[in-house]
Amino acid sequence: MQISLYDWNGNTLATWVGLDNYVDVVSDPALRASFGHALVLIAFYALLPLLVGLVLTAILSRARVRGLGFFRTVVFLPQVVAMVVIAVAWRRMYAPDGSVNDLLSALGMGSLTRGWLGDYTAALPAVGLIGTWFEIGLVTVLLLAGTGKIPTELFEAARLDGAGPVREFVTVTLPALRGEIAVALTLTVIAALRTFDLVYVTTRGGPGTSTSVPSYEVYNRAFQQGRVGSAAAIAVVLTVIIFAISFGITRIAERDR
């Protein structure tokens, strides 16, 4: 906290600058952009996996499927692999001669191929998609665990009332999963805001600053550029946002119960 009020390079004497570092967080376009990138990442880390997870849960809650245990093991696997390893793997897949481009060509979309992480417009979604891949397993397993707790009679009753698959999902499964959805959102949104390793290894914030995110800026300013005060201010803002979000989502979930 204290450091964030000074202009300090980490070695020489610090000068008092009051709230200037915080003003910078709001006014500096590069910093504003990095918080904007974090918002984009939230869509990829939290919303997209939640959608996919809900669809998968809808499918799986309708019938006992064999091999569910195996499926769970596989989709949860990304969660335990070190982020650096994941980043190395995806960097390769996103390379101009990587398997993502191979797949696109094979599907007849050869015109879309590019060096994904080196492209100004494609880099951020490309990084986000790694996050989607990473979080799908967590969200799905979390939702599945929640569905397991719904009494089967509820489904039977819905069917007797003549509800179709979609109605059944919206009226029975979805309300019962509210708590799990809140937990899933909290976890994935925080993960999105904290993204560091992934950006550090895949793009280092580049090309330009097109994939720079707040926690990368903290690291970059504090330990590369020697702008410790500014870094501390970003860190404080980031923490406040994370606390607010986790508090807010938990509150909403509890009120609805």
């Binding site: 019938a63 499927v65 499926f71 596989v74 696997l77 793997a89 799908i136």
Partner: peptide, 27 residues
């Protein structure tokens, strides 16, 4: 559930399992 739905379920599950394993297998 109907046989068609069951098959569709497996197709979706296998597709996601493959997606989850894709980078792992690449490496």
């Amino acid at each position: 559930v109907s046989r068609g739905e069951r098959t569709a379920n497996y197709v979706v599950l296998v597709a996601f399992a493959v997606f989850a394993l894709w980078p792992v297998l690449t490496v």
